[in-house]
Design a protein around this nucleic acid. Sequence first.
DNA 1: TATTGTTATACTCTATAACTATA
DNA 2: TATAGTTATAGAGTATAACAATA
Lengths: 162, 162
Amino acid sequence: MVLEMDHVETILGQWKKQRPDLDCSPMGVIGRVGRARQLMTNKLDDVYKRYELSSIEFDILASLRRLGEAVTPTELYQTLMLSSGAMSTRVDGLVKRGLVERQASEIDRRSCLVTLTTEGLALIDKVVEAHVANEHQMLLALTEEEQAQLAMLLKKWLVANE
Amino acid sequence: MVLEMDHVETILGQWKKQRPDLDCSPMGVIGRVGRARQLMTNKLDDVYKRYELSSIEFDILASLRRLGEAVTPTELYQTLMLSSGAMSTRVDGLVKRGLVERQASEIDRRSCLVTLTTEGLALIDKVVEAHVANEHQMLLALTEEEQAQLAMLLKKWLVANE
DNA sequence: TATTGTTATACTCTATAACTATA
DNA sequence: TATAGTTATAGAGTATAACAATA
């Protein structure tokens, strides 16, 4: 059996030596979630950049696509945890590129609905396919069963903490 | 048995409805790693802020502490994945607060060693204790065995991908 | 010539709050 | 008065590259 170490294992060993009184075992989980996230984010960004999208732009377009309906800027910034001002700026950029449109609301004239244009829909459908293929590729180091187990454990933590 | 949903489960359902042709199962893993990371980061930041440290400042002080020896700015920015300029700025801030010092290197006069001051050492020891206690608290939703399993699965992925 | 580390510059992204229009 | 959304401002953080000193 091969006993390979990862970066967090090294860090745990260093703490063990310098502060043997501390039980740093939770770093084995939390540190690895952080490090995995960082590496995963880099790989996800590779695909976004191929289509000249930032991570947030992808999230906006993907939200509109998977919800299957137009949503207000307020719903968008609350869902994606951005300020209203930041969302306005992001939507502006997508409007300028012809990927989304703002439609006046018929029931509340203060409000508007952000919708995908034909070009935006075609783009996000293409990007999501590349995105999902990329994600499949990223998980090849784990068996289907391990992936399911990992998802299940993270879900249990999230149900208790989100 | 309780079947609670998390946020990612909702998103998976939306994709299933809008794009039933796509196998989005990897989102169950990658999406949850990202979401868990975000929630964990917020909770970790609570402790850092209590001691008026940013996440990066904590990382610098903790690196010095667990390595148990002085390191060069170059080692620091490579380990923490920052640019050299950004590290200079961060170290400056910690020097101004009396938490670290720059010592001239005796073997290479271009270089220096960053060391914890007495105050810096006392501070990081206190913060790390609060940090580890915080991390223990954050994982209470999982049993010891589940935590170990989660760490093991993430480690397997990291060994193959980092 | 190459490398270490600092400094100066410019850029990206953001939150905040002021603001307009409407409810 | 409160809310939806935009705009203007200012701040945090960064990378980049120019720079000085040394290898």
